[in-house]
């Protein structure tokens, strides 16, 4: 089975998975108490039975559960995720506006966590008795125990208030109205704090993981072979050992991709980063069911993409996985 076959099979699986997710989400939302009508009526400050019945009919809530489910799923299959009553816009457009910000945040944080975490782990494995090893251990313990919203607020306090070098909120400076490279730099400037906050907890975890894995690999027979070949220590560590040591990090990073997406909700709220997390937060507050369902589905898509990327990375790093499609 070739690479293309593998990808096609994975995509077929993904479609089935998304369908199950859509059904499950819809059923769960249906089971939850309260609906849009109650929220609207609540905001209107009360309404007559008649108006409520009218609204219920208008939103199709008077139909049976299976009927509603069928309508929802068949619409989703056609790419229609429904309409957000609160934002007064189609759900899909609303989410797609926000997806890039979240993807940017999550992937930056992931890249920072993996690269910096692995590097720190490797260095502390190479010099286990040094101050660096101790620093990595302490940072890891600290980073892993501190909750995201707290470390976010502390970083905010430090770099936006005490040493005001980084912007405290938003994604770009509205006043500047910059374009092109200036815009990209502006976004990057705004990205530093949220991405760092989201990365910290994973950076801590990955550095520990990479350290343990590196220590094991450095004691392996093939590293001894590489040394016996007369390679420099850097080649032994960064070529022969690292590629093997990074496997557990890739595995865990893939498994935690969804957790990171969830973490993004908090971080986006703290830093008013205009992503899906913030949208999710608002949609839940407003009981905007269609929007919630849309966000959940899109999150599932992102998680599936994340897992696919993990498997791709795995196949790239470890040739043993390539043969058994």
């Amino acid at each position: 089975m070739g690479f293309v076959g593998w990808i096609l099979r994975r995509l077929a699986w993904a479609a089935g998975l998304l369908l199950s997710v859509a059904v499950l989400n819809f059923s769960l939302m249906h089971m939850a108490p309260g609906d849009i009508v109650q929220t609207i009526v609540g905001e209107m400050g009360g309404a007559s039975e008649e108006t409520m019945a009218q609204l219920t009919k208008a939103y199709g809530l008077d139909r049976g559960f299976l009927d509603q489910l069928w309508i929802y799923v068949s619409r989703v299959a056609q790419g229609d995720l429904g309409y957000s009553y609160y934002f007064n816009r189609p759900v899909l457009g609303l989410i797609l506006d926000r997806v890039p910000a979240t993807v940017l945040l999550v992937f930056t944080a992931l890249a920072v966590a993996i690269i910096a975490g692995t590097f720190l782990g490797v260095m502390s494995a190479r010099y286990p008795a040094s101050w660096l090893g101790a620093l990595v251990t302490i940072t890891a313990l600290f980073g892993f125990s501190a909750p995201v919203f707290w470390s976010g607020l502390m970083l905010l306090l430090l770099f936006a208030s005490v040493i005001p070098i980084l912007p405290a909120s938003g994604m770009y400076d509205v006043a500047q109205g910059a374009t092109g490279i200036a815009y990209a730099l502006d976004v990057a400037h705004h990205l530093v704090l949220p991405a760092l906050t989201l990365a910290i907890i994973y950076l801590a975890l990955y550095s520990r993981l990479a350290r343990a894995s590196m220590i094991e690999v450095l004691g392996s027979d093939y590293v001894r072979t590489a040394r016996a070949k007369g390679l420099s220590e850097n080649k032994v560590v960064f070529k022969h050992a690292l590629r093997n040591a990074v496997l557990p990090v890739v595995t865990v990073a893939g498994l935690q991709f969804s957790a990171m997406l969830a973490g993004a909700v908090l971080v986006e709220t703290v830093f008013t980063w205009p992503g899906m997390g913030q949208l999710a937060f608002e949609s839940i507050l407003r009981r905007d069911n269609q929007l919630i369902l849309g966000i959940l589905l899109l999150s599932a898509v992102l998680v599936i993409i994340g897992n696919l990327l993990t498997d791709l990375a795995y196949r790239f790093v470890d040739p043993r996985i390539r043969t058994d499609g």
Binding site: D221, Y222, T225, N244, P319
Partner: peptide, 9 residues
Amino acid sequence: MTSLNPVFT
């Protein structure tokens, strides 16, 4: 079995 690096040809 273990003296060769599994990730290089």
